[in-house]
């Protein structure tokens, strides 16, 4: 078996909330309250094989984007390992990260905010390439930029324009060309199509698939849209409140979702397919705050199947017989008596 392109182990990211002054308090023993933590990611593990597309799905605030941006080292991980081609890069200082960035690039969500409005397209797409060092003549720079743009379906004449002269879909193509400029093996895509109209969304998804085949890319694809994830992913991880609650191959996940939350998510998504009659699983309430995680299982406050053990013990992500993995006490035993009806 080929070694994974990306291996993440027990990744934790917590953001401190509030400054020094917010912590001052009166009449509670200590004058200084402990620093509050927003626990965005709580021990997430995942692996991506060469050429594989792994989709992270979940609702807003579930930490999926934070996982992506922590792997790209936009955020510093609080703890855990991030192995790229076997090398742990989670503690690498800034300069030592530079060669790693040749293997790992990122595509962003907002096509309007992810391109510097004051740069020409040529300079935008070549930025990661130039950051790697080495001198390029004007001619070479122009030629390489044009070649990159051609890969994403833009023409040479557009290389000298500014981002505001492009539509949302074209800007997203520019963002993809930028990621390709260093010929990476792994691209982290943070909701790359969620800001686009559906007809444009299809263009971009098709382009990403073509590029994967051409360059044998792996994607970590973050999305809140299950049908998009279904379309592009080989494997899918479902996140809730900073925890990975289930990972499975795409077909397994959609055929036989195991975690109660995955089931809710699948049934709640509106769909055009008439084969899925409107039997929606009812779910109570809303996602708890990441400032105060519930004890035990993260989903127990809304889970229709929660029982005593769920409040006491936090379920670990356990591998199942069919290759998937679930973090739920109902799937903890080999006997089938407690299996979800």
């Amino acid at each position: 078996m080929t070694p994974p392109v990306l291996e993440v182990k027990d990744l934790v990211k917590a953001f401190p909330v509030g400054g020094f002054l917010d912590r001052l308090q009166v009449g509670k023993g200590s004058l200084l309250a402990p620093q509050r933590q927003l626990r965005a990611v709580n021990g997430v593990s995942l692996t991506i094989a060469p050429g594989e597309v792994f989709a992270l799905v979940g609702e807003s605030g579930c930490g999926k984007s934070t996982v992506a941006k922590t792997i790209a080292r936009i955020y510093e991980p609080t703890s855990g390992e991030i192995r790229i081609d076997g090398e742990d890069v989670s503690r690498l200082p800034f300069r030592a990260m530079l060669p790693v960035r040749r293997k790992l690039q990122m595509i962003f969500q907002d096509p309007y905010a992810s391109l510097d409005p004051r740069q020409r397209v040529r300079d935008i797409v070549m930025e990661p390439r130039l950051a790697q060092g080495g001198r390029l003549s004007r001619r070479e720079l122009q030629d390489e930029a044009v070649a990159l743009l051609a890969k994403v379906g833009l023409n040479a004449e557009q290389a000298n324009r500014y981002p505001h002269q492009f539509s949302g879909g074209q800007r997203q193509r520019i963002g993809i060309a930028r990621a390709l400029s260093v010929r990476p093996t792994l691209i982290i895509a943070d909701e790359p199509v969620s800001a686009l109209d559906v007809s444009i969304q299809a263009q971009i998804l098709n382009l990403m698939k073509d590029l994967r085949d051409e360059f044998r890319l792996s994607y970590l694809f973050v999305s809140h849209d299950l049908s998009v994830a279904h379309h592009i992913a080989d494997r899918i991880g479902v996140m809730y409140l900073g925890f990975m609650v289930e990972t499975a191959s795409r077909d397994q996940l959609f055929r036989e979702p195991k975690h109660p939350y995955t089931r809710v998510l699948l049934s709640a998504a509106p769909t055009l397919d008439k084969s899925n009659p409107g039997t929606k699983i009812e779910i109570r309430g809303e996602v708890p705050s990441a400032l105060r995680l519930p004890s035990g299982c993260c989903f127990r406050t809304r889970c229709p199947l929660a029982f005593d053990r769920c409040a006491v013990e936090r379920p670990a992500l356990k591998p199942q017989a069919d290759g998937s993995a679930v973090a739920c006490h109902l799937h903890d035993r080999t006997d089938t008596e407690r299996m979800i009806p």
Binding site: L98, R101, A113
Partner: peptide, 12 residues
């Protein structure tokens, strides 16, 4: 804005 994050990922 994300273009600053993009520059960081680029290695600037």
């Amino acid at each position: 804005k994300e273009y600053i994050q993009a520059a960081r990922v680029a290695g600037l």
